[in-house]
Nucleic acid binder design. Structure first.
Lengths: 234, 234
DNA sequence: AGTTATTGTCTCATTTTGTGACAATAATAA
DNA sequence: TTATTATTGTCACAAAATGAGACAATAACT
């Protein structure tokens, strides 16, 4: 029997959002030799906080620390239990299923979403997967198990939180223009916003620090750059 | 070794809100012979959905089905792990700790809050506890482990959701006056609200059905009764 | 110097919310 | 019967927030 290293029955999945080409994208893993696509996830060590485990996984997948991270739901239906899928994945990687039988048990999964600066990420697959790549939300491959449902709930929670907090800035580099911020909001909410109203609203919140202008080389007035006043919105 | 009946390492806790005497109250259990106070909680059977397990527990504690229920956070810090506390509880109830050693393991806990009609509830202790009783939020006894923190997060989530949904009605009987609804909102938000603004706002949402007046026997104009138009807000 | 595309800000209309006023009314007191 | 009292439903007006457009300012190009 294997040495017990992780809490049994407990997994986490993460929906890692990035923003590029005016679109919301998330990181998706592809397992070796199986055609299975899945959210980045992992297990919790016996002596490790749940949140620490998730941040450890995020670091491995993205190379980043200090990521904006929010737990949004724990999925615990029996229907999640599909031992055949995990068995296929393990066997396709040459693992001895008997030794890893704990991975074939029923799992509940605590789901998190993360918001990161797309340009800073170095997507990195794990030992079981060929690739870890960005996919636009409207062009996701078929995801295994209930991962599609997890993505949808993540997006819904992100939308709800957008009204209350200023989480959108976590998807941008430290300095950004008002137009870039608006594009992020539009991508998250899935609708066009009115430029002047958006600008007035954002400035009235007093969370943005104005910096020098950005001269892009384009033939028009240069926009101001902004940064977010507070560190690590949580 | 015990017969495995529940998922190891996984528990749930529930913050069950009721409204009485113009105050928010929650159900608290007191364990036999220990002086420990705790939130109602339980474990998940091997073949049972997580949500089903929680509803099963709610039914046992309150006698009610079809309760408004929302999952709000999963607590997974290592610091939650206090085997001595559970050992004390088991021993105080004459249980053989060796047979129940799985209860001394580290647990993560999925926390839910429920909103119920106070008058319909029959609080019922379980086998390990003397009592299951209502406590006003501002008069809670010292709770074991991180249960105080769980309560605070439940209240915060309830406040956040109050703005978005009409969850407050779940704390009232099917027919209620506008003033009663306002008192619920004030108890949840912890602040006084302006009568006319509140009434106009509630009516403008078009979720309330007006019924006959309620003649209370008091020397003043009788208020209308209202019911909530939709069934089971979720 | 004129053109183009975009930005920052202003104005006015519309909607929502804050605040108080007031008549209506159910039971009680005179 | 007729005041009195406490509370309710609704209105009116003020203040604040939002919607929608106008317009001058301005980088870079022609």
């Amino acid at each position: 029997m294997e040495v017990k290293e992780y809490l049994s029955h407990i997994a986490y999945d993460s929906v890692i959002f990035g923003f590029s080409g005016n679109k919301l994208k998330i990181l998706i893993m592809k397992y070796h030799n199986t055609g299975f696509f899945a959210l980045p996830g992992g297990f919790v060590r016996l002596d490790e906080d749940l949140n620490t485990a998730v941040r450890r996984g995020l670091k491995e997948r993205t190379g980043l620390d200090n990521i904006y991270l929010e737990q949004f739901y724990t999925f615990g239906d029996v229907a999640r239990f599909q031992p055949g899928v995990m068995k296929t994945i393990l066997e396709a990687n040459g693992h001895d299923v008997a030794e890893n039988h704990w991975m074939l048990d029923r799992f509940i999964s605590i789901a998190y979403y993360a918001l990161i600066n797309y340009d800073k990420v170095v997507p990195t697959p794990d030992a079981l997967s060929d690739s870890c790549d960005w996919y636009a939300l409207d062009k996701l491959p078929p995801l295994m198990q209930d991962h599609q449902q997890i993505v949808e709930k993540a997006l819904q929670t992100l939308r709800d939180n957008l009204e209350r907090k200023l989480v959108g800035v976590n998807l941008l580099p430290p300095l950004f223009t008002m137009n870039e911020l608006q594009k992020v909001y539009e991508a998250i909410l899935g609708e066009k916003l009115r430029r002047t109203t958006f600008q007035r609203k954002m400035l009235s919140l007093n969370f943005l620090q104005r910096h020098d202008k950005q001269y892009s080389g384009k033939a028009h007035k240069a926009p101001f750059l902004y940064s977010f006043k507070q560190e690590g919105v949580e």
